[in-house]
Design a protein around this nucleic acid. Sequence first.
DNA 1: GGATAATCGAGACGGTACGTCTTGTCTTCGC
DNA 2: GCGAAGACAAGACGTACCGTCTCGATTATCC
Lengths: 216, 216, 216, 216
Amino acid sequence: MASVTRAAEPSGTGGSGRRHHGNRHGRSEEARLAILEAADDLLVEKGFAGVTMEGVAARAGVAKQTIYRWWNTKTDVLMDTFLQDATEDLTPLDSGDVALDLRDYLRRLACFLGESAPGAVFKALIAQAQHDQGFAQVFRSRCLDAQRRRDRLPLERAVDRGQLPADLDMAAETDQLVGPLYYRVLVTGEPIGPEFTDGLVDAFLRRHGLTTPPRP
Amino acid sequence: MASVTRAAEPSGTGGSGRRHHGNRHGRSEEARLAILEAADDLLVEKGFAGVTMEGVAARAGVAKQTIYRWWNTKTDVLMDTFLQDATEDLTPLDSGDVALDLRDYLRRLACFLGESAPGAVFKALIAQAQHDQGFAQVFRSRCLDAQRRRDRLPLERAVDRGQLPADLDMAAETDQLVGPLYYRVLVTGEPIGPEFTDGLVDAFLRRHGLTTPPRP
Amino acid sequence: MASVTRAAEPSGTGGSGRRHHGNRHGRSEEARLAILEAADDLLVEKGFAGVTMEGVAARAGVAKQTIYRWWNTKTDVLMDTFLQDATEDLTPLDSGDVALDLRDYLRRLACFLGESAPGAVFKALIAQAQHDQGFAQVFRSRCLDAQRRRDRLPLERAVDRGQLPADLDMAAETDQLVGPLYYRVLVTGEPIGPEFTDGLVDAFLRRHGLTTPPRP
Amino acid sequence: MASVTRAAEPSGTGGSGRRHHGNRHGRSEEARLAILEAADDLLVEKGFAGVTMEGVAARAGVAKQTIYRWWNTKTDVLMDTFLQDATEDLTPLDSGDVALDLRDYLRRLACFLGESAPGAVFKALIAQAQHDQGFAQVFRSRCLDAQRRRDRLPLERAVDRGQLPADLDMAAETDQLVGPLYYRVLVTGEPIGPEFTDGLVDAFLRRHGLTTPPRP
DNA sequence: GGATAATCGAGACGGTACGTCTTGTCTTCGC
DNA sequence: GCGAAGACAAGACGTACCGTCTCGATTATCC
């Protein structure tokens, strides 16, 4: 449905310096990047409603058809925009201590969702997923699954270390850790400070009979 | 901004029989209801994108201007649609036992969000709130605040009864109870069964040193 | 069809100081005048398209219904506007000399059509008559016939005096005198000076074997 | 302002067979013709008020935007409609005799203005010119000037032949010939028969001392 | 003097058309 | 064959007026 992978680069070029304007040998990397950047800029500048295929094409200096050739809807473009930028580091820490790992991770996740530019794109995509079942599915497999895997990582490592029981209901525990966070971001709009995320971690520890280590 | 209250009924009529087609002394109740119903129907039948001012007007047998006279956007209409219907019973049970109350409430909330028609409107409104800061504010004060008050009610009653400590961080606890639920509905899209909501209640009880009563 | 005569004034008041807001026995003269004046002003300020029932009502401080009670269309209002103002003196001179009479009359007619405010209304009404056969009929009987009678007057007087033959084709002669004038005003838009109107008179005189008297 | 010339045809095709649906290298001739025809039909069927951009688009099977891309107003469309059809033959006869030429020409002009379909469009355009100064200017340069040149032609030829003096005031004479005709059509609405147009010619001849030849 | 009846201002109503905007498809041409 | 350019059909947007209606207040006249 959506364009998942970019066209294969001409073999041997190493994907490096070649600048082609689109010809029989594949799509124009130049155009692709210009489109993603234009979409991103428009979202930041004018909000979701300000992102239109027409506007993106104009700002990217690209024909509309070039967008439609590779994406179906503006949300598909935004999703690629997100994937392009989402190197935004959310890889969980691995300190050897669940408490520390979780505190660190949740803080960064809160910051990502609530304040960063990619976070804004992310929220826009979640919003779109409410309106469009088909998009929701693609979005989940392309963006959310990776995210959920990251969310689970600290817990999995703790299980491996023996800090947590092996029969832990991983899905439910993860939902309880990150769910309240998304809830605040998406629903109530309340700001999220460390005291909130730390509170979530403490509750988690208490539930599992772990003592709360001193806060940094 | 949005039309908050319907026009005052002529005193003493009990809101019953008066039929006026709109004049200086008030708007047409007939038109108002037709519009809300049309919007609701369209959302259910054709999804959010299928709700257009033009379509609502046509189906309601109403002039577009009549909609614009009282609402600014289609989401404002949907919000009133929601408020009209949201008698959908979510008033928490008061059995005298926090555990029972919470289990009952979360199950019904899950059902409301995930399966009911008003729940679909609710999700659409939350989605719109991601895109429009102004709408978000109105939506929160007109819809969410009441909801949050309901969410908190079981806990407040338990505090009153002495089942829970008086210094409970009400906001944080509520977020931990309902947050994962919203997260599943809005983000992951996973279905929510009683085992999930009951698990949330159990975790809550365990956190606060309460024993888990037998499940019904 | 159109409102031809104003409502009879209450007898004895002499149309002077009475201020009534309209009751069962007569309409409000105040409102009638405000409407006519508003329509006139709007035509001058914003052109024909700027004259709307809504706009007239607003500027006159009058309810739309009050206009519709007495007139059918905005052109009906404009016609009454015209009749109200058209005291603009076009009564032909009677000097005893056809040549002098005609010269004077055509000059003033040209000025009326081309430059005066009532002339602008007149042109607007003629324009509307092209689009609406029904209006054309009313317009002719209410405005044009009187005008045509005035046009003919100098010739009729000359016939009475014996200056012109009794079997003169009055209609055709009048058309040849004023026709070119209307043509310039309505069609070509060329400015009309005395040399043009005087030329028309000279041609007329020559056609009928009359000598051209010295120009003033 | 208004669309003056149609898009250049690809050279050498003779305007014949090429069918393009509109692209960067020119507009769709198909759409252009459909629009003009639809406008014409609507004017004839429902009168000037029945010609709406919406209606023209619908009947032509064309998007409104396609009309707005090439014309500003419905009267601009009607003007092109007129120019398209105005091959309606009004080219003056050249018999070698002014009297015959003029009689023939005025009769045909009367018929054109009073009875033909293009004549109806012409009157509608003149009406619009009363309301809109800008349109008046365009209309005159695009339609009227050509017409005036035709009007003058019989006289010019007579001057060339020596039948009329070389110092004839061409403009004034033309106005006196056709002015009464337009006056009847536009203002009084009286029907125009040959006796009227022939009378105009006779008057012209008499003014210039020419004998009236026998009528055909 | 109280009832009646028409006018008045106000403005909501169902509509139609406006002119603009965006979508997604298409055709043509240059590279 | 890709990409730029841009015309096209479709249709929603929000606005402006249309002509009708209902309301409550305001009078003159009549009983």
